[in-house]
């Protein structure tokens, strides 16, 4: 009985302990990286390589989702006789939710896992200890640029995701389902304000920083075994995917208002 009571308590405690550790790690690593000479350059390097590795997966994941969105929205809108609203609705949903959410999920899966695995392999090979042994700041040198890199790469990939996803929706709506081309193109920006785009980009910066910190911390604090490397990569992916989706909800509520639509941007 006592154990039953203890479990949620212990879980909550270890959750907050882990959260505190990630936040502290994030601060040390990024501040360390910014202090380091060439830290920003290293971060840009990481961002470029991350963007290059994630670009194709982002396209392949988000394109089909855009197409699916168009297909199901059209079914739904036909029911209300409002199928002319398809393009603005789809584009708004893509910019606000789908692109940032799934771009971040792909960064978590592709980049996050490799950050965690890379750092864990360095931990295993005692490379990190070697850096510390030379009196260098291993967090700032190794983890920091990767975290900042994820934060820089995420908005770039978000822009790519918006374009491909809208292209997917266009392909399905216009080329397959016969929505008039001009109607789609002319109405497509009607549901959107510039602020939506900025908010979408801002969200992905937060996602990128958060998942970068989660994954770098997982790799940095991994167990020194071959299986430890795999475990760090797996744990990092799952935690950061969950982080992205939970964070997305929290940010949405903050943006669109607690009562739903009170601050709606339309």
């Amino acid at each position: 009985m006592l154990a039953l009571l203890r479990w949620p308590g212990a879980t909550t405690f270890s959750f907050f302990a882990a959260l505190g550790r990630v936040v502290a790690f994030f601060a040390q690593a990024t501040v360390g990286a910014l202090r380091e000479r060439g830290g920003l350059a290293a971060a840009s390097q990481q961002a470029l390589s991350l963007t290059a590795r994630c670009a194709l997966p982002v396209v392949l994941v988000v394109g089909p989702i855009g197409a699916m969105l168009a297909m199901q929205s059209l079914t739904l809108l036909r029911g209300f006789g409002t199928e002319r609203q398809l393009a603005p609705l789809a584009v708004a949903v893509i910019v606000r939710e789908i692109a940032p959410g799934f771009a971040a999920v792909v960064v978590a899966m592709q980049g996050g896992a490799s950050i965690a695995a890379e750092l864990a392999a360095m931990r295993l090979a005692e490379e990190l200890d070697a850096l510390d042994g030379m009196g260098l700041d291993s967090r700032g040198l190794v983890a920091g640029p990767r975290i900042l890199g994820a934060a820089f790469a995420a908005p770039i990939l978000n822009a790519l995701a918006i374009v491909t996803s809208v292209a997917g929706a266009y392909g399905m709506a216009v080329l397959v389902l016969g929505v008039p081309r001009t109607l789609f193109l002319e109405t497509m920006l009607n549901g959107l304000t510039p602020l939506d785009v900025w908010l979408s980009e801002a969200k992905t910066v937060i996602f990128g920083m958060g998942l970068g910190a989660i994954c770098a911390s997982a790799g940095f604090h991994s167990e020194r075994t071959t299986t430890g490397v795999g475990r760090a990569a797996n744990g990092a992916v799952v935690t950061s995917v969950v982080f992205v989706l939970v964070c997305n909800y929290v940010l949405n509520t903050a943006i669109f208002g607690l009562s739903g639509g009170a601050v709606a941007l339309s």
Partner: peptide, 13 residues
């Protein structure tokens, strides 16, 4: 060890 991480990475993506 790097191969192990890379395999996990590719499997997910």
């Amino acid at each position: 060890a790097r191969g192990v991480g890379a395999a996990a990475n590719r499997a997910v993506v």
